[in-house]
Computed example of a mutant assay.
Amino acid sequence: MHAVVVTEYGSSDVLSWQEVPDPEPGPGQIRIAVRAAGVGPTDLHIRAGHLQGPFPLPTPGVLGFEAAGTVDALGAGVDGVAIGDDVAVLLPGLGGYAERVLADTWVAKPPNVSWEAAAAFPASAEAAVAGLVQLDVRVGDHLLLFGGGGSVGSIALQLAVARGATVVAVGREHSRATIEELGATFVPSDEPLLDAVRARTDRVDAVLDAVGLGDLGPAVELAGGTDRVVTLTGAAAKDGVHLLASGPHRAPGALDETMPLLAAGELRLRSRTTFPMREAAAAHAALETAGPHDKVVLVVD
C-alpha cells in the first residue's frame, strides 16, 4: 500500500507519497481500506515538530487521527462489524494518511453520509463531546465558547444547544453567520471580552476554549473561577485552567452519539475542501496560508 510519510520534522515539503507495508490488525482492531481522511490543525503542528512531547513521530511516520473507509480485515475478538462494512474511525494514535489504517474506535457510516463528511468529523466530534462532558454542560447553563465556527467548536455549539444550554460564542467576523445559524449569540473576537460578553449575557457558567487562546484570564473572571473552564491546548492550560482530558475513555460514546445526528441532518459540519491523498503536502501548505479555511479532507483515488 501507499501512505503519506513524514521522514523528518519541517515544512509541508517533508510529506511524501511512499510505498509502506500493509498494517495487520491486532486484538480488538479493524483494518479499513481508506476512502477519505481528515486533516486537522494538530497534524500540522506534529509535522512541524511543535508537539514532539505528546505526539512523538516514528521514523518514518504517518499523520492523521480520523478516516473513513471499508473494513477489509478484523483482529481477534472483534465483533459487531464485518468485512465489507463502511465505517468512520478514530485512530488510536496517528496513521490516517494511508490507503489502509488500523483502528479500535469506529462507527458505521450510513449510506447518506458522504465519505468526505464521515472522515471529517470523528476527531472533532470526540473532542467536542469530551469537552462538554468534562464541563458537565446541562440544561440552563450559559456556555462561553471560543472558536464556535471551527471544526470542534461548531459541533460543541450544536450539542450544547441541543442539551438546553445558552451559548455565547466568540469568533472572527467571517464566522458570525455560521455561529448565529447554529443557535448561539456571536461575540466578535476583536472586542474587549469582558464588556462584550456582559453586554450579551447576564452570567457565564462554563467556558470551552476550542481554539487555544493564550490568555483565558478574562474568561476565568466571567466564569467566577477555573472550576468549569476547559481548553483544548496546553498553551492555554495555565493558572488553574483545565486541559481537556486525554486518553481513550474520555468520551467513549462520542461517535455513536454524533453519527446518527449527522445522518439525520441534525448536525452540521464545516464546509470542506478535498485534495487527493498523494497531494497532502499541498493540502498542508494551503492550510498554512493566512485567512479562513474549510475543513480539509484527503481522498484516495
Rank of each mutant, 00 (worst) to 15 (best):
V207E: 08
E126D: 11
D301K: 01
A169D: 08
A254D: 13
P111M: 01
G75N: 05
T231P: 11
H242P: 06
A254T: 15
D227S: 15
P41M: 05
V297S: 07
D205G: 06
T59L: 12
A165H: 07
D256G: 14
R270L: 07
G64I: 00
G84T: 05
P23N: 00
G28R: 07
A88F: 02
H45V: 07
P276C: 06
I83L: 08
A162S: 10
A82E: 12
L143G: 10
P260I: 08
L287Q: 14
L135N: 11
R228S: 06
L44P: 00
R200P: 15
S271L: 06
E24M: 02
V211N: 10
V230I: 15
G291L: 04
T185H: 01
T105G: 00
G96C: 06
A128P: 12
A177Q: 15
E279I: 00
A108E: 11
S151Y: 00
V241G: 07
G77D: 03
A162Q: 09
P276S: 08
V78A: 02
A206C: 10
L193I: 02
V39Q: 06
T105Q: 12
D202Q: 10
R250H: 09
F121Q: 15
M259I: 11
H50Q: 13
T105D: 00
P260Y: 11
G40M: 08
R176H: 04
G225M: 02
V34N: 15
L135R: 09
H142T: 14
R31T: 07
S151W: 04
V299P: 13
A130M: 10
H284F: 11
V129R: 00
A263M: 04
S271H: 05
G214L: 04
P54N: 07
G253I: 03
A283I: 05
T201S: 07
L63R: 05
V167L: 01
A290K: 14
P252R: 13
S246E: 13
A88T: 14
A219C: 09
E126Q: 13
G171V: 07
